[in-house]
Design a protein around this nucleic acid. Sequence first.
DNA 1: TATGAATGAGCCTTCATTCAT
DNA 2: AATGAATGAAGGCTCATTCAT
Lengths: 227, 227, 227, 227
Amino acid sequence: MASRPPDPDLVVAARRRRKTATAAGDKHPLILQAAIHVFARHGFFNSQVADVAREAGVAAGTVYLYFKSKDDLLASIFERTVREAIAEGRAALATVDAPIDRLRAIARRHLEVISRDRDLAVVFQVELRHSTKHMEEFSATMLGAYLGLIRGVIAEGQAAGAFRADISPTMAAKVLFGALDEMATNWMLSRRRYSLVAEADVVVDLIARGLAAPPRPGKSTPRRRTP
Amino acid sequence: MASRPPDPDLVVAARRRRKTATAAGDKHPLILQAAIHVFARHGFFNSQVADVAREAGVAAGTVYLYFKSKDDLLASIFERTVREAIAEGRAALATVDAPIDRLRAIARRHLEVISRDRDLAVVFQVELRHSTKHMEEFSATMLGAYLGLIRGVIAEGQAAGAFRADISPTMAAKVLFGALDEMATNWMLSRRRYSLVAEADVVVDLIARGLAAPPRPGKSTPRRRTP
Amino acid sequence: MASRPPDPDLVVAARRRRKTATAAGDKHPLILQAAIHVFARHGFFNSQVADVAREAGVAAGTVYLYFKSKDDLLASIFERTVREAIAEGRAALATVDAPIDRLRAIARRHLEVISRDRDLAVVFQVELRHSTKHMEEFSATMLGAYLGLIRGVIAEGQAAGAFRADISPTMAAKVLFGALDEMATNWMLSRRRYSLVAEADVVVDLIARGLAAPPRPGKSTPRRRTP
Amino acid sequence: MASRPPDPDLVVAARRRRKTATAAGDKHPLILQAAIHVFARHGFFNSQVADVAREAGVAAGTVYLYFKSKDDLLASIFERTVREAIAEGRAALATVDAPIDRLRAIARRHLEVISRDRDLAVVFQVELRHSTKHMEEFSATMLGAYLGLIRGVIAEGQAAGAFRADISPTMAAKVLFGALDEMATNWMLSRRRYSLVAEADVVVDLIARGLAAPPRPGKSTPRRRTP
DNA sequence: TATGAATGAGCCTTCATTCAT
DNA sequence: AATGAATGAAGGCTCATTCAT
């Protein structure tokens, strides 16, 4: 364990939380969760760093030991959420093989992450949209990674002949992400408390149908099995 | 045409602004439009009153001759939009008689007002949601008037036997408004430039179908039972 | 009347009221009186030029046709009051001869001017004291003239042998003015509505007694008569 | 002496300021003193918070760690002064017994507090009078406490038979306070630097004489009749 | 002369960020 | 690592003053 090359993802994650996550007392997730709650309740601009600190039960200065700036709090929320979605997406992929099932797994986890914490959903779907700068910056990095995950699954499906090959997998990935993102926004804005995750299936069915390879007579969609 | 008595609506509109609207020189709509653009571009909190003033080509202090505060700019955008939507909705109603056509007319105009100015849509669907205070305050006044307009059409339809009478017209009006509002938010958040107005028909078809008066006895809607 | 050399005082006064005091509609005193009321009620700094204009029944811009600035309003109140006090003092002097009577006449008129208008008293005794700059500037001009009037009377009394010559008439004038000024301030600040003018006699008695020439045996105070 | 329980008054005073008054570093009195000097020199309205901060040697924002607003600075000056006057008055009362001596002690301390700091006197007697709001608000609280102190002494004197009982102690307290307040204002406005404290005796003599219990029957105060 | 809409400099106040302890 | 007092830049708003009509 000591000499193995470190997982790049873990390195990135560790770098985010300044140095030692020594014992149990890591205040990084504590403050981040406080920020989610405070931002969701009052909005990013109406919230003060001192509010977040108070909610987290730390001093105002302590926030700056874990985050570069107030903006960094927002960025970290975005980043952590996307990172988790990627991780959960990957984990979900491990259990299924058929391309359409893999897409469904990603979509379900995506909406699960969102619907797990309504405050997070508010921040992620609304507050994050304010700064075009943020959006553009993060779209290029984290979001790119997430889209890459989806694109990979689609490309696999195309390679396996399950999906039509005459559509760019990047474009198809964006369509799926866009649809899921809009589901999430609707759910978050809606006063009703319906099941968000259930919509994953509908979205995937719809898109998968659009992606389906034209049936070749007498040959059903092949199911690939991973070891 | 020159000496005709003035349109009462225009008189009301003029009274809203400063006294002598010296022909072209009324700065009220000028500043409001500038605010819509600036707020849409940078977000309400990232915008400065000075930015709005510069965009409108007036001095910073001038903004305060027409609006009580920066918040009032936001509130005025909301108010003007709802007022226009009501006026357009009423105008649309004048041309059709059948209840379902009347609903469709309102829905189309609603989405037309939104899609006419994308900046306005951004401000109206996103920035306005920030301040719970604003929302609550205006929900009670302007929004109430708009919902009243819809409710009236539905109640008419019920009275005429076109709509089922066993649903509160207030509730039905909220459902329609909620659906249109979500269409508008989706369109505004979406990167795609599809026709928003076209969705009005889909929404109205759906809801009108749900509102349709039950067919004559002997041919009841089949009730599916879930286990 | 046309060719006589103009009275310098009138010239100054006329210059103050920009050009023609054409007919009855001179707004200069109107605005000044409005300023006295407004400043007395809310204080100089809490009053706005627009308040004064409204009280005077004119537009805000009109104030600037008669006064250089807001400060000039305060200065003009000071100046007009002192000018009137001088004029009234001179008029009073015309009726009496004995030095002590002449001092008493000045003192009475001084306090009369003050007590005639309580708002004026408030402005004159309190608001005017705020700006040291103003005080110093005006002390050198208008107040100097008023003190000169008093000093003249005292010097006359000294020349006539009625007052001791071993005290500077300037110093004695300041003492008298200072005493009267403090009476005025007390009266203005006091919640009681006693007669301010009556205090003139007390003050003059006191100071005149201090100024009295040492009695030379067998020779009573001479009474001078002016033609 | 080192381990004695702390003086309750000091505890209260410390609580008034920010928590840990790290020995010499308490900026509350520092800023307050700076405000007294700046306000006295330029007047409340001509002074900027930044001026006060600079005079106190702190940053502008620091003022707001100790005071709610610029107005609060003025209010705090008032409050601290009255509080000190009450404390000094009480201390003075501890040394004397005879009612008239007790009144004289209070009066002397009152004028002592004022004359100790001329800047304070200027602010207290002039600037504070501007805002009627302030006056009314604090009259009801702090000033009420101070008047209560005086009233108590007078009531004691009445109970002891030293003062006539046919005058309301509240009214008598107001008369004494009013007289002292006017002495203070005169002294502050006056260019002369006479002893303000000495006037306490004169005022108290006068009022105490008016409060004196009527002599025993058979030797009544002569009543003069005016025609 | 009179108007009042327009201007823009100025100031109070907030709050993200720093740093001595 | 943690604190929270201190900082000072930034921005909303006011209002004295100007000027085109």
